Simulated assay, not measured.
Amino acid sequence: MTTITLSSAAIKNMFEQLHHNFGGSLSVNVKEHILTLDNELGRGHIRGITFKGGISYLEFDMEFSEDVTLRTGTDKNAPICFAYCSEGRIEHSFNNESERHTLENFQTGILTNESNAVNTLYFRKDVRVNTSLIVVKTVGAEQTEKRNGLNYRLQERILKGKTAENTIYIGSYNLKIADQIKQLKAIKQQGIVRSLLIEGLVHMILALEVQQHTDDLKNQENQTGSLNTREMESVREISSFVHNYPERQLSIAELCRKSGLSPCKLQEGFKLMHGTTVTDYIREVRIIKAEELIKNTDLNISEVVYSIGFTSRSYFSKIFRNKYNCSPKQYKDKQNMMAVSA
């Protein structure tokens, strides 16, 4: 087992210590730190970035070759940590306590600390883990000038004016957050554009975590719904299939056969992940694909309509107008005009 103790929670110092202990290669892009490992200790990367206002994002996308324990202390005003596990599982304990809490695949968690507490994360050998942590600095009683900021509002939402204690809240399964993290990983831009895109998605993930916590409190009798982890994974696979093959005429019955889920569970999963029904999701995927084809190809409108699985051009025009506030032809004409002027 390898045990690492980090003396600082500041991203820059933290990554210097991680680099010193784990080896690998450390790169810094604007304020984003990425430690890439491919050695006897493990493979993967650890990423961290700090934004204005005291919000930081940490991501562990790792598979260690041995058990790894990571210990880090907190300040007098200990932060609130919003956690999400999109692959594998991770364990946590406070100080030197023997009790461990487990965050499983697709689960949300909220961690609060008393002053100067120590947090310990446990990574099991040969288990691929992808865990994201959003760390929110709290505002001290004397920092009255910061009480209009996002940090203070989140602090009031979670702590409700009480003094922070060592508590961990394990919430429901949530596939929407996994989708946002997937988009975050897909960012190819560099420099300030990359930083802005990451910050926007991190705030979206944070909003979804807070909403999940609110929803869970309203329905504590049924925190995780009726779907288990395997069934949630099936919903994600079916979502990817629909996204990759929008032109196919997909029925609920066919998707149920492919996923092994009942119609009720399939619909429940799409409601959890996308906030909509299976049919509405298929239509949304097709209309977005159509917009891409109109913008980036020479296909005429009829060819676009039939290439994405619609059978009625008038129906397509209606839902396209509802989404983009113009007809497909007007949209294509506008794109052509922009191309000429460029």
Score class of each variant (00 low, 15 high):
Asn325Ile: 07
Ile55Met: 15
Ile282His: 00
Asn174Thr: 03
Glu142Gly: 15
Thr3Phe: 10
Val210Phe: 11
His20Gln: 15
Tyr306Trp: 07
Glu63Gln: 10
Val28Phe: 12
Leu150Gln: 07
His101Arg: 14
Lys271Gly: 03
Val242Asn: 03
Ser115Ala: 14
Gln335Trp: 02
Thr277Ala: 00
Asn113Glu: 06
Leu266Gly: 04
Ala339Asp: 01
Tyr122His: 04
Asn219Tyr: 10
Ser27Gln: 12
Asn113Gly: 15
Thr112Pro: 09
Gly309Gln: 01
Gly275Ala: 01
Asn105Pro: 01
Val139Phe: 13
Met62Val: 03
Asn166His: 07
Asn219Pro: 12
Met62Cys: 11
Thr297Glu: 09
Ala290Cys: 12
Lys318Leu: 03
Ile90Lys: 09
Thr74Phe: 02
Ala83Asp: 08
His33Gln: 08
Ile282Tyr: 00
Thr214Leu: 02
Cys256Thr: 14
Lys188Pro: 07
Ser132Tyr: 03
Glu268Thr: 05
Arg89Ile: 08
Asp67Leu: 05
Ser65Leu: 06
Cys85Glu: 10
Ser56Met: 02
Gly109Tyr: 02
Glu91Met: 13
Thr276Phe: 04
Val193Asp: 05
Ser86Asp: 08
Arg248Asn: 06
Thr214Trp: 10
Glu104Thr: 15
Tyr57Asn: 05
Lys289Leu: 02
Lys125Val: 04
Ser7Val: 03
Glu292Lys: 15
Lys182Cys: 09
His243Ile: 06
Gly88Glu: 05
Glu32Ile: 09
Met232Cys: 12
Ser7Tyr: 07
Phe320Asn: 04
Arg47Asp: 11
Glu40Leu: 10
Glu40Lys: 14
Ser132Asn: 15
Thr311Phe: 07
Lys52Ile: 10
Val139Leu: 09
Ala78Cys: 14
Glu87His: 12
Ser307Gln: 05
Glu199Tyr: 04
Asn95His: 06
Thr50Trp: 01
Leu70Trp: 00
Leu35Gln: 06
Arg283Thr: 08
Glu97Trp: 08
Gly161Asp: 00
His19Cys: 06
Glu99Leu: 11
Leu121Lys: 05
Asp216Leu: 11
Asn322Pro: 06
Lys31His: 09
Lys334Gly: 13
Ile187Cys: 07
Asn116Ala: 09
Glu284Tyr: 10
Asn325Tyr: 11
Met232Ile: 04
Ala10Ser: 12
Glu16Trp: 13
Lys160His: 07
Met204Thr: 06
Glu142Asn: 15
Cys326Met: 15
Asp298Ile: 07
Lys76Asn: 08
Ile34Val: 15
Ile282Gln: 14
Asp215Gln: 05
Ile34Pro: 08
Asn13Cys: 14
Arg248Gln: 05
Ser93Gln: 10
Leu293Ser: 04
Val30Ile: 14
Gly309Ala: 00
Lys76Phe: 09
